[in-house]
Design a protein around this nucleic acid. Structure first.
Length: 639
RNA sequence: GCCGAUGUAGCUCAGUGGUAGAGCAACGCAUUCGUAAUGCGUAGGCCCGCAGUUCAAAUCUGCGCAUCGGCACCA
């Protein structure tokens, strides 16, 4: 007898062995039909998996989140089956479920072309209609290796060779197709349904290593029903509409041009936005006790050799020559900040020193990595280095986390995740130092009220780090902020302070950024707001426009009054219908339109129409300006 | 950097070897209109670049460059 504990706590007793399919059938015919997989002690497994001991048990149906993972994994297998039927010279490699879908990497001489996707998709539908039964088989390793080798599936053979000795080698069979796979899978191909679509072709390195050959990856999306698929495709369209490159053009914010690959041409409106963000940051940093500095663009290679960057990042650094000297265009600011720190003598009483710079940096990113504002070669960091004692790490970290969270909130990002990266295998500094740094960092993160997940071994070689990931309005995650504890650079560049004991000591450096880079963060902001910026960020905050030319003089008065109040305003007295003008300014995403006609001119009022779709209000001019001015101050007014 | 696709008017795109096209935007004229598209007209092109094939190339071939989608990279 085995006891199965169901999610509601009830226990069902069966004669062992029994399968999930048997249990589902026992509970009811409806469930037997809907069952896709089971969860045994929290782990997904096949319906056909035999149960021989007491376990926590649940049946997975299309309603469960877990079902999607199984379903997508199946979609990958069905795609592989379709591909091998259509193109028998193709080797299969790996094909996992991923967020929103799945992919499969294939090895084939001739690349796939976009038209192939249609054919493959059609064949997949046929395989679903065939409703092939999916069965699991456990093979002896050597048999499996020989089997795949003899089939010409060399990648699969390699994968099996890499499976640890103590693990089963499981194969899944559906029709004539058999693939190595950990599972679990659906009971038959028919259960996949038709809510899938192949999305794109891409190259991908075997085992993710750029030294290896490149395989051909096909991405697809799969859902439990067509409604979900349609919703997903609509979401993608929406995301495309808010693509910052498109908004940048439509809203005249910036442009990119091949004469300056990876560098941004900021247009007047985009630069206004940039400055609004920068002013906001500057005010916040000053209030948080930072001092602002500015350091050279061109710095002799010697400094980069001393800091260690030359050795590690030489390839990605731009250089310039002058007489006999080789200069690097700075890829980061920290070595320069250390130079400022080292001028004169610093006492323990001066610490912490929080040195900030809107540091303009250049990195020669690989051409294939460039992407709009999100990945550029010339960018400005909201960089700062906190020089402090080891005892100050905790409080400085906590203060930083508080500041960061408040700033993200002001930009409309409420949801922030924190990743904690601890010591990597290859590292500098003693274990005691790392113990101290890691526990100080953890303690501070928790004191700031943040939950974190561990990113084991991903710390910098010089110290542990925190990475801050914010979630945007359509659920995408962006890693922006970082805080890194560094014991190494002060050592390499010989930074010291005089302690209570009158002796020289090494300060600790905290490298930290909140936005990351202005370029990227502004791109994220554009997409987050879909270009509909809150008033304090909007490049044009209000447009005054007329119904007929009778109101032109009054419109000019209103415009002047807005300018005087510090509002970024424009005026539109073109001889066009009011509908036309409203439509146009709404498309330009101007947050406030002041419509004036004869009535408003006579009564010294304005009809205020807001972009957010609220009803228009007729207000006295002075009142309207007060409301707008208050809003235009943004979060700075409240804090 | 690697794999694949794409590159035609400001934008979105059509045009498969024989005179370069549409819609929107722009400009001009008329229209003075009350909350998301007034009408008519005009102008606009090194068809990404360089070679080649051809009587003839936006179109075919080769080589570049850029962009897009991924992969790899990201101090």
């Amino acid at each position: 007898m085995v006891n199965l504990t169901l999610p509601d706590g009830s226990i069902r007793k069966y004669d062992a062995p029994i399968t999930g399919a048997d249990v589902a059938a026992d509970i009811g015919p409806g469930l037997a039909k809907a069952a896709l997989a089971v969860k045994i002690n929290g782990e997904l497994a096949d319906l056909s998996r035999s149960i021989t001991e007491d376990v926590a048990f649940s049946i997975v149906t299309a309603k469960d989140e877990d079902a999607l993972e199984v379903l997508r994994h199946d979609a990958a297998h069905i795609m592989a089956e379709a591909v091998q039927e259509l193109y028998p010279d193709t080797q299969v490699t790996i094909g996992p479920a991923i967020e929103n879908g799945f992919y499969y990497d294939f090895a084939r001489e001739k690349p796939f072309v976009p038209e192939d996707l249609e054919k493959i998709e059609k064949r997949m539908a046929e395989i679903v209609d065939r409703d092939e039964v999916i069965t699991r088989e456990v093979w002896a390793r050597d048999d499996a290796i020989n089997f795949f080798k003899q089939k010409g599936e060399h990648y699969k053979a390699q994968i099996i060779e890499a499976i640890p000795e103590d693990q089963d080698v499981s194969l899944y069979r559906q029709g004539d197709f058999i693939d190595l796979c950990r599972g679990p899978h659906l009971p038959s191909t028919g259960k996949l349904g038709k809510a899938f679509k192949l999305m794109k072709l891409a190259g991908a390195y075997w085992r993710g290593d750029s030294n290896n050959e490149m395989l051909q990856r096909i991405y697809g999306t799969a859902w439990t029903d067509k409604k979900q698929l349609a919703a997903y495709l609509t979401m993608l369209e929406e995301a495309e509409k808010r693509d910052h490159r498109r908004l940048g053009r439509e809203m005249e914010l910036f442009h990119l041009q091949d004469v300056a690959q990876g560098s941004v041409f900021w247009h007047p409106k985009g630069w206004t936005l940039y400055r609004a963000v920068q002013d906001y940051m500057r005010t916040n940093l000053e209030a948080a006790g930072y001092v602002e500095v500015n350091t050279p663009q061109l710095v002799d290679r010697k400094l980069w050799e001393d800091s260690g960057h030359w050795e590690k990042f030489r390839e990605a650094m731009f250089v310039a020559e002058s007489e006999d000297r080789l200069l690097a265009i700075k890829p980061m600011n920290c070595p320069c900040h250390v130079q400022i720190f080292k001028q004169g003598t610093t006492s323990y009483r001066d610490l912490p020193i929080r040195m900030a710079e809107f540091g303009s940096c250049h990195r020669n990113e690989p051409s294939g990595a460039l992407h709009g504002l999100m990945r550029v070669r010339a960018f400005t960091q909201d960089d700062a280095h906190i020089f402090c004692t080891e005892d100050q790490i905790t409080s400085e970290t906590k203060d930083f986390c508080d500041l960061l969270l408040r700033i993200y909130k002001d930009f409309g990002f409420e949801e922030v995740k924190v990743k904690f990266s601890d010591r990597p295998e290859v590292r500098a500094g003693s274990n005691e130092t790392w113990d101290k740094a890691e526990s100080a960092l953890k303690e501070a993160t928790e004191a700031a009220g943040l939950e974190w997940t561990l990113n084991p071994g991903e710390g910098a070689f010089y110290g542990p780090k925190l990475e801050f990931v914010l979630r945007d309005a359509i659920g995408r995650d962006w890693q922006c902020g970082t805080l890194q504890v560094d014991f190494v650079l002060p050592e390499r560049l010989d930074a010291t302070y005089i302690g209570v004991d009158g002796e020289k000591h090494r300060p600790v450096m905290l490298h930290r950024a909140i936005l990351g880079s202005f370029e990227r963060f502004l791109g994220i902001l554009m997409e987050n707001y879909a270009g509909k910026f809150p008033l304090w960020l909007a490049p044009v905050q209000a447009v005054v426009t007329t119904i007929t030319s009778d109101a032109d003089d009054y419109a000019l008065d209103v415009y002047e009054a807005l300018k005087t109040a510090g509002i970024r305003a424009e005026i539109d007295v073109r001889n066009e219908k009011i509908n036309y003008k409203i439509r146009e300014h709404s498309h330009k995403k101007v947050p406030a339109i002041f419509v004036v006609g004869k009535r408003e001119a006579e009564e010294n009022k304005v009809a205020v129409r807001r972009l957010d779709g609220k009803d228009q209000e007729i207000l006295a001019l002075a009142e309207a300006i007060d409301i707008l001015s208050a809003e235009a101050k943004g979060p700075l007014s409240g804090s």
